[in-house]
């Protein structure tokens, strides 16, 4: 089941390279803050398509029309994430405050326990947040559904907590592997170029700089958007896995 999700998502994200480039351009301008919300809004749309679609179906990539509602969707996405992540943050703060009052071994013990609890809370909160966003998308973007904890918990129960966490772990691993492999391939190519020019007796530093630049550009304009669509699609499909 998990492998099916990954396979579908990997194919889905590679459907249209133009979309990836457009997303990359938006990502490039995201220091202006508004485009950052457009990206999250696009991810929301991908999730929206996924939760209403079927796995291995012929879902099209969402298009870039109606930027304003995309922006508002992006704001929703970010608010839901922030509100869920507040929970582990508050837990961590409480432990830090308590540890600050005590001293010696007790303080470090409290801190370690606090870190473990925070980590567990973080995983749960992140899972709930992603599923909350899916649940919101499934219910036509009703904001209250993102915080209907009991409904979301039922959804996760039906999918299975273990499967959910395993899918998330897999996502993280696949993301890291793809990033690493792509930059390693480009790095190897340009190292080979640079070495050959060095053997020919030309200064190779410009080639290395060019290599680094191309690496950054490809990561930003192709791989980054690809991975973000991939992640959103996988999570959306995971939501549809309830029995």
């Amino acid at each position: 089941m998990i492998l099916d999700i990954y396979k579908d998502s990997l194919e889905y994200s590679a459907k249209d390279w133009k979309t990836l480039v457009i997303l990359g351009v938006i990502c490039f301008f995201s220091f202006l803050l508004l485009p950052a919300f457009l990206i999250t809004g696009y991810n929301y749309r991908v999730i929206n398509t996924a939760v209403h679609g079927v796995i291995n179906g012929r879902d099209p990539l969402p298009d870039f029309e109606d930027l304003i509602s995309m922006f508002v969707d992006g704001v929703k996405f970010v608010i839901v994430q922030i509100l869920y992540l507040l929970v582990p943050a508050i837990i961590f703060l409480i432990f830090a405050l308590v540890a600050g009052q005590t001293n010696g071994v007790a303080a470090s013990a409290i801190m370690i326990i606090g870190c473990i609890i925070t980590f567990v809370a973080f995983v749960v909160a992140e899972l709930m947040a992603q599923m909350g966003i899916c649940h919101m998308a499934y219910n036509d973007g009703a904001f209250s559904k993102a915080f209907a904890i009991s409904e979301i918990k039922e959804v996760i129960d039906e999918i299975g907590w273990f499967e959910c966490i395993a899918t998330f772990l897999g996502l993280i691993i696949i993301t890291l592997v793809i990033l690493f492999v792509v930059s390693a391939i480009i790095g190897i190519i340009f190292t080979a170029f640079g070495l050959s020019t060095a053997i020919l007796g030309i200064n190779p530093s410009s080639i290395f700089i060019l290599g680094a630049l191309i690496n950054i550009l490809i990561t930003m304009f192709l791989v980054g958007p690809y991975l973000s669509i991939f992640n959103s699609r996988s999570i959306g499909l995971l939501y549809t896995m309830q029995i």
């Binding site: 304003i68 509602s69 922006f71 929703k76 036509d140 973007g141 009703a142 904001f143």
Partner: peptide
């Protein structure tokens, strides 16, 4: 359906 439709419409 949702709160945010108002906001989209207003924008």
């Amino acid at each position: 359906a949702s709160i945010t439709d108002c906001v989209v419409e207003g924008l």
